[in-house]
Design a protein around this nucleic acid. Sequence first.
DNA 1: TACCTTAATGGCACTCAGCGCCATAAAGGA
DNA 2: TCCTTTATGGCGCTGAGTGCCATTAAGGTA
Lengths: 185, 185
Amino acid sequence: MTDHAAIEHAAFRLFDQQGFDHTTMDDIARAVGVGKRTLFRYFPSKNDIPWGQFGASLDLFRKQFAAVPPETPLAEAVHACVVAFNTFDDTVVEQHRVRMRLILTTPTLQAHSAIKYEAWRRVIAEYVAHRLSIGADERLPRLIGHVSLAISVAAYEQWLIDPGSSLTHLLDQEMAGLKAYLASR
Amino acid sequence: MTDHAAIEHAAFRLFDQQGFDHTTMDDIARAVGVGKRTLFRYFPSKNDIPWGQFGASLDLFRKQFAAVPPETPLAEAVHACVVAFNTFDDTVVEQHRVRMRLILTTPTLQAHSAIKYEAWRRVIAEYVAHRLSIGADERLPRLIGHVSLAISVAAYEQWLIDPGSSLTHLLDQEMAGLKAYLASR
DNA sequence: TACCTTAATGGCACTCAGCGCCATAAAGGA
DNA sequence: TCCTTTATGGCGCTGAGTGCCATTAAGGTA
């Protein structure tokens, strides 16, 4: 009766109690009541556990883009989808904050994030490429993926600092801050 | 008579021959003619070997910023220093390309890059913070660090694709591409 | 009911990064 | 010559991650 949610739950409890680095896969396996070998069948690595079902949320991300009217200005479309991607129900927003705090404050996980971010950037690059009728490996699609990520991570960092802040509002603010910065003389 | 350069040289040869993941620290130690334990005294981890003396180059990066006239527009100053940081002599540019290709195409190293990038972003954040008379942990300094990194990585990716391209020219192009993207309606 | 197939499980042994500890050798200074 | 510092590297350990294989549960068929 093992499933991802049960593993995640037990793991997050241990990460909170002992810290990520001081929690072994054997610890988690024991807490879930399962063999270590089984854990590695549900999550390809220890670093993937905090990310939960990130791959599934990328599918939703793609659907957001698919639903954008084609006449929407490109930058506006991308920003709106990034905001939508980071919009969470009140019932899960605190759990999301715990998850992201763990990921963004644990060096091991910050490093692993690069792999996850790459897939996220790819979704954006593919949309931009589609809109411009070019390949997703072209210069501009990749650039927009990188810059959108930069804005998002900056917003997340601020979100973790200000407990009362709104993530979507912060995304707007970071975007506005970037525009002002580039326009400044 | 062991030094960083000798280790790097032997390691790069092996990485080229066998791939990064299939080269063990024991392999490198044997090639250098030194104990594995000694390798870990020169480089804190296997992942740090491809980065060479990155920390030292960050000191130069800081000096670039210190030499900028205070009346230079902020965005212009940052971009100029990023370009300067990525300006290499013709005699070392090909070695730099090998290094960056390894880092940017090996998943293990892409992940580790996050740690290195953080220190690089910090240099930018500190300069922006200084110019604005605020803290380096404030929103805008961190944002500019992230966005500058996004532009740089995008330029590097393109640089690896186009063998004849100029890295500094690509940095200008990515910056121009971003401005055009954000200004588009 | 007996039989067969398939998927999930988990134990075992192995590789490799990385660290703590300690012994040794070389170098340099008084 | 003695003492101290520094570089070295061996040894053994922890922990992530993998391949292999045996066991068990589940589901379908004759």
